[in-house]
C-alpha cells in the first residue's frame, strides 16, 4: 500500500489532540465527503495576544488525513494567529517527513482548516479557492483541475507545453496519454485540433559517426547540434564566460518552478563537463531530487548542445572540485 513515513504512522496510530476542544473559540470545517476526507479543527485562542493556547481535531479520513490533522494541531499550539497563517501545506508534509504524492491533498486540507478556523475567529468570510481533481501526474502530484486551468489560461496545445507550465508529465511520462486526452477535449472546445508531437526519438542528438575518426563520445556529442538544431549555438565557439552565463540563464529559467514548491537551485561551479549545483529548501531530501537534477541536466544539454553532468553539492560540505 502507501509508503508512509514513520512519522505519519506515529501520528496515525497515536494521534495528538484528538477530539473537539470544549472551550474552543474558533472552528474550521473543511474537506469533501465525496473524496472521503474531512476535518474539523477547533482552536482555543487567547484574545489579547491572539496566541493559540490549544487545538483539537476531528477527522473523517484516511491514515494520512488523520496524521496531517494531528501534526497540524501540534504545530499551531503556541503560535499567534498570524504566525499560524504562514504555515503552508508543505510545512505540514515536512513535519511528517513527507507524504506520498496522492496524499499531499491531506496536508492541503490541514492548511485550509487552519485558514477556516482563523477566519471563523476573526469573523471573516473565507474565500475558498480550493479545487481539486483526480491526480494526473504522480511524479509531481499535479491534478486534473490544475492541468485544465493552465491549459485554458494559456491556450496550451502540446504535452510539452503542459509539462513546461505545470510540470505534469515531466517525470516518468506515463500520464502523457491522459494529458493528450485533456488537450484533445479542451482544444476541440476552442475549435482547434490536437496534433500530437511527431515521434522524434533521439535523432536530434544522435549524429552518424564514423567510428575511426571520432571514437570519443564527448566529442561526438559536441558535434551534435551542428546538424539538425540549426538555431542552437555551436558550443565550441562559446568562451568560458559565455558558457557559464548560459548555464546561469537556464538555471534562472528553472528556478521559478522549483520555488513554487518551496525549493531552489543555485550554480556553484562549472568544471569541464561537470556542472555543480546546490539544491535548497524543499528540494533537499526530496524523493524527487534526482528527477529534478535529471531535468536540469536535460535542459542544460539541450541549450548548450553538449553533454554536461549536473552534480549536486550538499549545503554544508565545502566544495572541493577536483580535476576529475
Amino acid at each position: 500500500m502507501w509508503d508512509y513515513s514513520e512519522k505519519v504512522k506515529e501520528h496515525f496510530y497515536n494521534p495528538k489532540n484528538a477530539g473537539a476542544l470544549a472551550e474552543a473559540n474558533a472552528t474550521g470545517d473543511v474537506g469533501s465527503i465525496s473524496c472521503g476526507d474531512a476535518l474539523r479543527l477547533t482552536l482555543k485562542v487567547d484574545p489579547p495576544t491572539e496566541i493559540i493556547l490549544d487545538a483539537g481535531f476531528q477527522t473523517f479520513g484516511c491514515g494520512s488525513a488523520i496524521a496531517s490533522s494531528s501534526a497540524l494541531t501540534e504545530m499551531v499550539k503556541g503560535m499567534t494567529l498570524d504566525q499560524a497563517l504562514q504555515i503552508t501545506n508543505q510545512d505540514i508534509a515536512d513535519y511528517l517527513d513527507g507524504l506520498p504524492p496522492e496524499k499531499m491533498h491531506c496536508s492541503v486540507m490541514g492548511r485550509e482548516a487552519l485558514r477556516a478556523a482563523i477566519a471563523d475567529y476573526r469573523g471573516e468570510v473565507l474565500e475558498d479557492d480550493h479545487e481539486e481533481g483526480a491526480l494526473v501526474c504522480k511524479c509531481f502530484a499535479i491534478d486534473e483541475v490544475m492541468v485544465r486551468d493552465t491549459v485554458k489560461a494559456n491556450n496550451l496545445s502540446s504535452v510539452e507545453d503542459v509539462t513546461n507550465y505545470t510540470k505534469a508529465g515531466g517525470g516518468c511520462s506515463s500520464c502523457h496519454e491522459k494529458i493528450e486526452s485533456i488537450l484533445t477535449e479542451m482544444m476541440a472546445e476552442r475549435g482547434e485540433v490536437f496534433v500530437p508531437a511527431p515521434v522524434k526519438g533521439k535523432q536530434k542528438k544522435v549524429v552518424p559517426v564514423k567510428p575511426k575518426e571520432e571514437p570519443a563520445p564527448a566529442k561526438v556529442a559536441a558535434q551534435a547540434p551542428a546538424a539538425p538544431a540549426a538555431a542552437a549555438p555551436a558550443p565550441g565557439k562559446l568562451t568560458t564566460v559565455q558558457r557559464i552565463r548560459r548555464i546561469e540563464m537556464v538555471l534562472e529559467a528553472i528556478r521559478p518552478n522549483l520555488q513554487r514548491d518551496h525549493g531552489d537551485v543555485e550554480l556553484v561551479d562549472v568544471d569541464g563537463k561537470n556542472v555543480y549545483v546546490k539544491l535548497s529548501g524543499a528540494c533537499t531530501g526530496c524523493q524527487l531530487a534526482s528527477s529534478t537534477l535529471g531535468g536540469i541536466q536535460q535542459r542544460l544539454m539541450e541549450d548548450l548542445g553538449e553533454f554536461v553532468k549536473v552534480v549536486p553539492v550538499s549545503a554544508n560540505a565545502p566544495v572541493t572540485i577536483a580535476g576529475m
Binding site: 494521534p15 484528538a18 477530539g19 473537539a20 470545517d29 473543511v30 474537506g31 469533501s32 465527503i33 465525496s34 474531512a38 476535518l39 474539523r40 481535531f57 476531528q58 477527522t59 473523517f60 488523520i66 485550509e112 477556516a116 473565507l126 475558498d128 480550493h130 479545487e131
Partner: peptide
C-alpha cells in the same frame, strides 16, 4: 472517536447537518 460525525456513543444528531465541511 476521531470522527466529526460521532459523539460519545453514537452518531451526532443529524450528522449531515452537524458537520458540513466547506468544499463538500
Amino acid at each position: 472517536k476521531l470522527s466529526p460525525y460521532w459523539s460519545d456513543n453514537g452518531p451526532v444528531a443529524e450528522p449531515e447537518k452537524a458537520f458540513a465541511p466547506v468544499y463538500a
